[in-house]
């Protein structure tokens, strides 16, 4: 029953749904219908409501009161808004690319045929599985300046290690290290992507005498671009909203001296500690716009470097 006749290219409005393109569009809407239903029922309302609360004063208890742009004016004058945004941008700029590169390299390593690979893969994934309380305790221990293993290791080379999480200079790098270490999720996404690359391509390349590096650059990476694109976009969306890692490592404070006060801790604090839900919503709206613009830019640029079986429209 599938269309075996080529579509005519100028359908009328009524004819459209009968044409091949129309039927394709119909299939599209049907395929996304379950998600759309969930979105309309459970997601859209709360998102719109919470962003609208950004224009109100709302302390959760008393009814929200419309205050127009007041929250946004407050926000411009709020040093903690700038500090938390700055800290977050710093972490995004470092952790996203580092996490991607490290995960990619590990995925390459784990994409081999070696005895015991199941155990290796599981091992590399463990930091993403262990509950945050346990890994936070571990990192506090590893990074403890006097007897922690990290400074002990640096000491072997005669380097006096910093005070890591207690230092305003090194606290962000410490957190980035932990984030990269726990980016096993990205690693398995790459691994799945690598597995999707047909072996025939490598064989063809091998026959041509291409070196490992050339195969990597000319076969692997191009075919991995959709996956890389995914991890980039999600890395930005996710890292702008980094929260739990910092929360458990700093006992919810974003210290020392606000040096790890990330955006979402500030949002959380306003919402559930200071009960300034309107202000928290305004902060969220700004974050939403920042991430949206970056994502749109990514999607626009994707056509230039992301390999696809379908031409981007």
């Amino acid at each position: 029953m599938a269309a075996t006749t080529p579509a005519l290219s100028t359908p009328t409005a009524r004819g459209f749904w009968k044409s091949l393109r129309g039927r394709e569009a119909l299939s599209f809407y049907l395929f996304i219908a379950p998600w759309t239903l969930g979105f309309l029922a459970f997601i859209l309302g709360p998102i719109v409501a919470s962003l609208a609360l950004g224009f109100t004063r709302y302390d959760i208890i008393l009814p929200a009161k419309w205050v127009g742009l007041e929250n946004f004016r407050d926000l411009i004058a709020d040093p903690l808004f700038r500090i938390s945004l700055g800290n977050t941008v710093y972490i995004v700029l470092m952790a996203v690319p580092l996490g991607m590169v490290v995960s990619f390299l590990i995925a390459l390593l784990l994409n081999q045929k070696v005895r015991g690979m199941a155990a290796y893969r599981t091992g590399y994934f463990i930091p993403s599985i262990v509950p945050a309380v346990a890994s936070a305790a571990l990192w506090l221990y590893l990074l403890q300046p006097q007897w922690g293993l990290v400074n002990g290791f640096l000491d072997l080379f005669g380097i006096k290690g910093p005070t890591w999480l207690a230092s305003t200079t090194w606290s962000k790098p410490s957190i980035i290290m932990l984030m990269v270490w726990a980016s096993g999720g990205t690693m398995i996404i790459y691994l799945a992507g690598l597995q999707d690359i047909p072996d025939t391509l490598y064989e063809a390349a091998s026959i041509d005498g291409a070196s490992w590096l050339r195969r990597l650059v000319h076969v692997t990476i191009p075919l991995m671009t959709p996956t890389i694109f995914f991890t980039l976009v999600m890395g930005i969306i996710g890292t702008f909203q980094v929260f739990s890692v910092v929360f458990v490592l700093t006992d919810g404070m974003g210290g020392p001296l606000n040096s790890t006060l990330v955006y979402l801790i500030y949002v959380y604090r306003n919402a559930f500690v200071f009960f300034r839900m309107g202000y928290a919503s305004a902060l969220s709206l700004i974050l939403f716009l920042i991430i949206l613009v970056l994502t749109l830019a990514n999607v626009r640029l994707a056509g230039r470097w992301v390999y696809s079986e379908v031409e981007m429209e």
Binding site: E24, F31, T36, E313
Partner: peptide, 26 residues
């Protein structure tokens, strides 16, 4: 699949991940 509005819907889909859960919770 190609359909009118697909790209816009895709952006909407992505944007559902951009609002912090703390403010949508209530």
């Amino acid at each position: 699949l190609r359909a009118p509005g697909k790209n816009a819907i895709f952006i909407i889909l992505l944007s559902t991940m951009m609002v912090p859960a703390f403010v949508t919770m209530i």
